[in-house]
């Protein structure tokens, strides 16, 4: 089974420094978007069980870090397809999906299954997998928390706000996964070193004739919620009394 896993590299949102109401985004380290790791892990697990190949597809819409790409390959992918170009930078899931659709066609990357994370850790639009499905005319299931791949279909369980939906989908198909689907492996240092030798296919966005609806970024601001940030110390009975006072003041007891 040939599987494509779509991966986004993002600034680690937990480590973005703050300066007044500005986020110093570019000072944060780069990571693989959280749920894309689940998608890649699922791809590798299916390959390990059924044979085939895993291709990591990476659209550089923001930061790029060679080491992090190696980490993705070291998780068990066979090769990487990297799509780059100035015009790809910024929030535009339509453009990202189109770049992937066109690049895998152009480079003749075969697939029975395409896996993506439900949404990215930075934008969390959750739009790209569904858009990619439309552009490749494939059936899609989003927000999949567990899945079972058969010969020519896949049974998925979608995790929704109010419950679960079990679907049977013919292959080839696109699936976006939630973090419940698996626990991603952590590659060893040796695996990461060896991953440097794996095949990398580079595609420039300018080769792809992209055309997409424009979305303009006006600004980004830090979202700050003012809190009192008082520290209360003392022995457990003392602090328990203080908490009770706060609860009483709020009318809770």
């Amino acid at each position: 089974m040939d599987i494509v896993a779509c991966v986004k590299l993002v600034y680690d949102e937990t480590q973005i420094p703050l300066s007044g109401d500005q986020l110093l985004i570019e000072e944060a380290p780069v990571k693989i978007s959280d749920m894309d790791k689940n998608a890649l892990e699922e791809a590798v697990r299916i390959k390990e069980e059924k044979g085939g190949t895993v291709t990591v597809v990476l659209v550089v819409t923001g930061p790029f870090d060679e080491t992090i790409l190696k980490e993705a390959l070291a998780m068990g992918a066979d090769r990487a397809l990297i799509i780059e170009g100035d015009e790809l930078v910024g929030h535009n899931p339509f453009r990202t999906a189109q770049a992937i659709a066109k690049a895998i066609k152009e480079k003749g990357i075969g697939y029975d299954l395409i896996l993506c994370g439900e949404g990215s850790s930075d934008q969390y639009s959750c739009a790209m997998p569904a858009m990619l499905a439309e552009m490749l005319s494939l059936p899609v299931a989003t927000f999949v928390g567990s899945m079972e791949v058969g010969e020519d279909n896949v049974i998925v369980e979608r995790y929704l706000e109010g419950g679960f939906e079990r679907l049977e989908i013919p292959l080839p198909a696109i699936i976006s996964v939630t973090s419940e689907v698996n626990e991603p492996r952590i590659p060893t240092v040796i695996q990461i070193m060896r991953a440097g030798k794996k095949e990398k296919i580079n595609v420039s966005a300018s080769e792809l004739n992209l055309s997409y609806p424009q979305v303009e970024l006006v600004e980004i601001k830090a979202l700050i919620k003012e809190r009192k940030r008082e520290k209360l110390e003392g022995d457990p009975s003392e602090v328990a009394k203080k908490i009770a006072d706060i609860l009483a003041e709020k009318g809770v007891i």
Binding site: L23, H91, D122, E216, V218, E219, I220, K221, A222, L223
Partner: peptide
């Protein structure tokens, strides 16, 4: 239209504009 939406797990807000 101009919209705002949360980004970076709620650490920031982005303002976007489109037709």
């Amino acid at each position: 239209i101009v919209v705002s939406r949360m980004i970076f797990s709620g650490r920031g807000i982005e303002v976007l504009k489109t037709q």
